[in-house]
Design a protein around this nucleic acid. Structure first.
Length: 457
DNA sequence: CTGGGGACGGGGCCC
DNA sequence: CGGGCCCCGTCCCCA
């Protein structure tokens, strides 16, 4: 006989214990704030904690401490509350960061809920597409604003890094839809700079444009996506406007005004926020730019001001916002947004695809060098560097391929040990790989190849 | 401190 | 529409 309320009461009791700090044996430090929790609960809820706690399971007498700098305490609070209650307090403001954190913590349930949340938001706004389309057609006839006007404003919008995760509602009058206001906020942070450079660049050789773009719109998303890295803050927007196209800048400005309620009297042209719904910037809408007197339809990202010509490109672009990385490297666990990135990674990192000696950087062939393997990482060494690295005693018979030779001990040179450490870091500290040095014939895939190739197709 | 190079991410666009 | 290629920007490491 099953008593359905048991699970609920159990969780409730655990939650009470957590709140009263009873039997808590795990401290989680998030940006300086300490959260108490139970190891077994975390273990059962998160793949990340499962790995972490299983590694430290021998030292059960002491409370485990985990430190995170990759998401905010508010975000972790949402996740921890979910773990202990089954209730996920998802809002438009926190969904991206919660999703990012859930991805980091390997909590697929939350991840899926976040995806659904985002998707449903997009679906809702897809319905508004037609409406906005007509509005868009109106606004394309407007005269572009003078670039210098944007430049002067940009300075006041530096360093949006942390602030956008919790938008200030006072500056964002659109509160009836929190998701909308969040997206609008994101957009507004980059809108000025993007308006200068975006879309009107027809050619591909626009390095300066790319540079600005990296510094502006997408640099924000990396904070979400690349949780693992402790990257230094990127420089703020720079450079001057060199844009001469006729994109609908006024729309962009109208968006900024509408969403941020800023004083725009100094800009000398009409705002259009009156005719544009306040939620339009959220929408996954079609976007018309007028260049060469030909209207060009584009798809706009709901998260930023980026537009693309094809829906598929937008889908690809959205991954940089959602943090979705559907292509895992099965050799090292690193995940990629695109198959080609995975392939490049795998070829260079795990297949020693480059015919360059890792140490002396000279060109090597199968005759002048060989492949050395450390963990899942492979690279080539010329015979000379191989000898210097003390790897020359490793037998080069093919049997070694399937019986990894651990060369810990006096076979490891200092250089090799450093390489090993680096290798471990680059494999996201998944497993402490032994230093394995093998002579590998590229034509004969070993077990790693066999395992990964199906992914590569 | 700085320049070079590797790894990786992202955009445009062709097939 | 997805796959793939090319190109470029950024970050990081190292000499």
């Amino acid at each position: 006989m099953e008593i359905s309320s048991h699970q609920f009461h159990l969780l409730e009791q655990l939650n009470e214990q957590r709140k009263q700090d009873l039997f808590c044996d795990c401290n989680i430090l998030v940006e300086g704030k300490v959260f108490k929790a139970h190891r077994n609960v975390l273990f059962a809820s998160s793949g990340y904690f499962k790995m972490l706690l299983s590694q430290s399971s021998k030292e059960t007498s002491q409370p485990t401490t985990a430190t995170f700098e990759v998401f905010s305490p508010e975000t972790f609070m949402v996740i921890l509350d979910f773990v202990y209650s089954g209730i996920l307090a998802l809002t438009g403001q926190n969904v991206i960061e919660v999703m990012s954190a859930a991805s980091y913590l390997q909590m697929t349930d939350i991840l899926n809920v976040c995806k659904t949340f985002i998707k449903s938001s997009l679906d809702i706004n897809e319905k508004e597409k037609d409406h906005y389309l007509s509005l868009s057609a109106k606004s394309t006839n407007s005269e572009p604003a003078h670039p210098s006007l944007y430049r002067s404003r940009r300075k006041a919008k530096s360093n949006p890094r942390r602030s956008y995760s919790v938008p200030d509602e006072k500056t964002n009058p659109v509160n009836e839809n929190s998701w909308s206001s969040y997206s609008s906020y994101l957009s507004s942070q980059v809108i000025l700079q993007r308006a200068e450079t975006q879309l009107s660049k027809r050619g591909r050789k626009q390095g300066s444009t790319r540079k600005r773009r990296k510094h502006l719109g997408l640099s924000q998303t990396q904070d979400f996506v690349q949780c693992k890295s402790n990257k230094t803050e990127r420089a703020g927007g720079g450079g001057s406007a060199s844009d001469s196209g006729h994109i609908s800048r006024v729309r962009e400005e109208a968006e900024f005004n509408a969403e941020n309620d800023v004083d725009h009297d100094n800009y000398g042209y009409n705002r259009e926020s009156e005719v544009i719904p306040k939620r339009w910037s959220l929408t996954f809408y079609l976007y018309f730019s007028v260049t060469d007197d030909l209207p060009r339809m584009r798809f706009k990202c709901p998260f930023c001001t980026h537009t693309v010509k094809r829906r598929a490109d937008l889908k690809r672009h959205l991954r940089c916002h959602t943090g979705e990385r559907p292509y895992p490297c099965e050799a090292c666990g690193k995940r990629f947004t695109r198959l080609e990135h995975l392939r490049n990674h795998f070829q260079t990192i795990h297949q020693a695809g480059k015919l360059i000696c890792r140490k002396c950087k000279r060109h090597v062939t199968d005759l002048t060098g060989c492949v050395v393997q450390q963990g899942t990482r492979r690279y080539r060494l010329c015979h000379k560097c191989l000898a210097e690295a003390n790897f020359d005693s490793i037998p080069d018979d093919l049997d070694a391929e399937h019986s990894p030779v651990s060369s810990t001990g006096n076979k490891c040179s200092k250089w090799a040990l450093e390489e090993e450490q680096k290798s471990d870091e680059e494999t996201m500290e998944e497993e402490p790989y032994n230093l394995v040095v093998r002579h590998v014939k590229d034509a004969i895939p070993d077990e790693v190849d066999e395992k990964v190739k199906p992914n590569l197709r």
